[in-house]
């Protein structure tokens, strides 16, 4: 709401229903729209409709709901409309459970819906960062006219932490009058569509989208380096909650005089390939350890970054289990 987003359409699903419950009370107070849709399919298409009208619009859901929303995400990306989707990931596949997981990495970074499109994906690792990412997501969605996903997990969705709102900048949504369908008074009618039966036109549209994704790759790479310096022996790569757990492990190793750093991708698309590649090329680094709450998804991107020049180990927990710092320490000791 601080981002100027007062249109919200959603369907309840654990572990993030608290958002809908809060907004159901709050939106009417600010003259906004809260609507509980009949399904995630409908909710996401309501997002599609409201985005067409040029308003800042968003939804929150969790893994199975996001699968149902993937249809609309593909359309919204194709129609080049701004919208924000928050996925508080729970363990899957299938109905899975309601516990934290990072099992939707592929779905978020590789599409989920049909066709050749990308979401901008931000992965916060604290409640503070979640707030900042949601604010940023609206700006990025408007800037690129593309859906943006904030990819959290059940732990981030359920825990409470202090948040400093004063550090969050006031948003300035851009003028959307050049495309928003708000009635054709004093102008030609606008059309928002995704059907291109002519293959040449369709290819042209695909290339236009691809050029936009290249711009994102150039300008929107975000990451954090933690305790990474020139004599690191092992670099841990982790995002979100897993990265936070690894920070505690890195602190413990530092106290024991062991040089281990953490590289935390913040934008999952675009993935920080180049910065990670540079770090992996540092002479002292003899191995990388990828820690995820899945069976190994981001590790594919780490491999692309490292290009097989250093060994990459993997430690993952699944099914809602969260790795502990002690477990990560155990893995590190095997590598050193």
């Amino acid at each position: 709401m601080r981002a100027g987003a007062i249109h919200y359409f959603a369907y309840p699903i654990t572990p993030q229903t608290e958002v809908a419950e809060y907004l159901a009370r709050r939106m009417p107070e600010v003259g906004g729209v809260f609507l509980q849709a009949e399904s995630e399919v409908a909710a996401s298409n309501m997002i599609f409709g409201a985005a067409s009208a040029g308003v800042r619009v968003f939804t929150t859901s969790s893994s199975p709901g996001i699968s149902l929303m993937s249809e609309a995400m593909s359309y919204i990306a194709a129609a080049e409309l701004p919208a924000v989707f928050v996925n508080i990931v729970r363990n899957g596949p299938g109905l899975g459970g309601i516990l934290p997981s990072q099992g939707d990495y592929f779905q978020a970074t590789r599409g989920g819906g049909h066709g050749d499109y990308r979401l901008l994906v931000l992965a916060p690792s604290s409640v503070q960062e979640t707030v900042e990412h949601v604010m940023l997501a609206f700006d990025l969605a408007d800037k690129y006219r593309n859906p943006v996903m904030v990819l959290g997990d059940g732990l981030i969705g359920q825990m409470m932490e202090p948040v400093d709102f004063s550090s969050v900048p006031t948003p300035h949504p851009p003028d959307k009058s050049s495309w928003a369908t708000t009635g054709c008074k004093s102008r030609k009618p606008y059309l928002i569509k995704t059907l291109f039966l002519d293959p040449q036109q369709s290819e042209e549209h695909n290339r236009k989208l691809a050029a936009k994704y290249d711009e994102m790759r150039k300008h929107e790479v975000r990451f954090e380096k933690y305790n990474i310096d020139n004599d690191c022996k092992v670099v841990i790569v982790a995002f979100g909650t897993a990265a936070r757990v690894c920070k505690t492990a890195v602190d413990e190793l530092k106290r024991n005089g062991l040089r281990v750093g953490l590289f935390r991708p913040i934008s999952l698309f675009p993935f920080p390939y180049e910065p990670l590649h540079e770090i992996s090329e540092t002479g002292t680094v003899h191995a990388l350890l990828v820690v995820e709450m899945n069976t190994g998804q981001m590790i594919d991107d780490v491999r692309l970054a490292v290009a097989d020049r250093k060994p990459i180990a993997f430690y993952g927990r699944q099914g809602g289990m969260v790795p502990s710092p002690e477990e990560v320490l155990g893995e590190i000791h095997q590598l050193i």
Binding site: H7, N45, M46, E71
Partner: peptide, 17 residues
């Protein structure tokens, strides 16, 4: 002004709009 909805979703789309 016109929009093209996903298959079957026009009422949801129109709701949002």
């Amino acid at each position: 002004d016109f929009l093209e909805a996903a298959h079957g979703r026009a009422p949801a789309f129109a709701t949002g709009l």
